[in-house]
Design a protein around this nucleic acid. Structure first.
Ligand code: FES
Ligand code: FES
Lengths: 147, 147
DNA sequence: ACAGAAAAAGATAAATTTATCTTAAATTTG
DNA sequence: CAAATTTAAGATAAATTTATCTTTTTCTGT
């Protein structure tokens, strides 16, 4: 559904939001340890998020990544658009060049609904909202298998 | 959402189903022309579908691919499982190693619903059903942009 | 039998995604 | 100012997906 890069991005941002109140900056090492993602790859992704204004960063000792209040209100939809693009959000389920009511593929009607459901979910969830919900629940950002 | 391979597979099978009544075998050249997919890649995919029993084939002149009655009743879900695997069908939306109610990621509840919606759609649609619906509508398997 | 047609199989290549490595730039603290 | 720490940037590499090419096998019709 989403690329690894996008999944890491969302997990990282939720983690940053969960530490937002502490007013500290979090370095790449901590982020990738906490969200269980490859460190250099995560660095690249954070770089991209930073360049596009989704996260803030500061270099040097005690530096790292952090979220400003407004950034924590980013929706998942915005992140997906920024990292993965819009194909998964509005493209044809069977890969036709255009998805339209005028020239629909055989699954157009039903697939459009699924896609809309997906879009809605992404749009109705903000990073800060998910971070807060996580606090009052047993939700996790990584799972070290305990089965 | 789905890989190119899987999209081509579904489009190819719907096309075969749409010609099922003619009792002819369709060669790769025709299939890829009609569903607008790269010929050698499509050949590989048809080979895989054939090996797994989703389509039938016959070599030699007048040979090609075709569907038996039972094969035309394949659901999209079966094809997706065979080509793309189950990750997209039951994997965690944020990439955790396991998706479970016990250790849910922050989007688990809502994502599960979207995923279920997707699974239902795939399970409730058979190749022959889509092929028939296509006949009585303006649906298409390729779109040569006419905008 | 033979020639031609078609799928099957296997080898190879290109493109994309994922991941890593190295160097540079910026910032803080002593 | 100097040293250490950390992001930024750029180059490189591995893995996966997508795509192509070549050869072999099988079948049909003459
Ligand atoms: S045309 Fe295929 S999903 Fe709309
Ligand atoms: S744990 Fe992430 S979707 Fe279920």
């Amino acid at each position: 559904m989403l690329s690894n890069a996008c999944k890491y991005a969302i997990r990282a941002m939720i983690y940053l939001a969960s530490r937002q109140s502490e007013d500290v900056k979090v370095n790449i090492r901590d982020i990738s340890a906490e969200v269980d993602s490859p460190e250099p790859f995560t660095a690249k992704i954070m770089q991209a998020l930073s360049k596009q204004g989704f996260v803030s960063s500061l270099k040097g000792p005690t530096g790292g990544f952090y979220l400003e209040t407004k950034q924590a209100e980013t929706t998942l939809l915005e992140i997906v658009k920024a990292i993965d693009g819009t194909q998964v959000l509005d493209g044809c389920g069977l890969g036709l060049k255009t998805c339209s009511d005028a020239h629909p593929c055989p699954i157009h009607q039903e697939y459009s609904h699924v896609r809309q459901h997906f879009n809605d979910m992404l749009e109705n969830n903000t990073i800060i909202g998910l971070a807060q919900a996580m606090h009052g629940s047993n939700s996790v950002l990584k799972n070290i298998l305990t089965i």
